[in-house]
């Protein structure tokens, strides 16, 4: 919907585009350039002994891709009776990953000036994976750093199963 509007806008060099999606009732966004495609939730094959947010592996036209559920990872309660669940295939420096989200909302475009830093709050979760917060009118969108959400520690955790197995 807003994609057309965006295309008509005068793109200044600092204008960045993000794909906004929902996890539960919260809005998050990813850099649009890291999004390869959006698909409906596929059938997955579970990965033995992987952390619980690893839903499994899927077949994307012959390519085998892992699918993760960010809601489990971020401890967000999924929407109920949701028919809009989708999977965003992201490309993180050549590594392809599917991310399950509750819904895809829109494409956001804003300049870096409009991004606020993460408020300094005591929090249980490590806020490192938040690149910033975009505020428009009264809604807030969290700009996610997916690589950090599933940070290296996780990658190792999975690889580290070597010793466990």
């Amino acid at each position: 919907m807003s994609i057309e509007n965006l295309n008509n806008e005068n793109v200044n060099s600092e204008l960045q585009r993000f794909l906004e999606f929902s996890l539960g009732e919260e809005d998050y966004a990813l850099p649009l350039l890291s999004v390869r495609e959006v698909i409906s939730v596929p059938e997955t094959t579970p990965i033995p002994k992987a952390p619980s947010h690893f839903l499994g592996i899927m077949n994307l036209r012959g390519q085998v891709i892992s699918v993760v559920d960010l809601r489990t990872k971020l401890k967000i309660k999924p929407k109920e009776n949701n028919h809009e669940e989708s999977v965003i295939i992201v490309d993180l420096n050549g590594m392809n990953l599917g991310i399950v989200v509750d819904s895809i909302n829109k494409v956001l475009a804003f300049t870096t000036d409009e991004v606020n830093d993460v408020p300094e709050i005591e929090s249980q979760v490590n806020a490192e994976y938040i690149n910033g917060v975009y505020r428009k009118e009264d809604a807030l969108t969290v700009l996610l750093d997916v690589a950090k959400v599933l940070d290296l520690k996780d990658l190792k955790a999975v690889g580290g199963l070597k010793s466990a197995a």
Partner: peptide
Amino acid sequence: IKKLGDEIRGRKG
């Protein structure tokens, strides 16, 4: 054989 992604590669077995 399809390679596994980096996120699950290198798992023993």
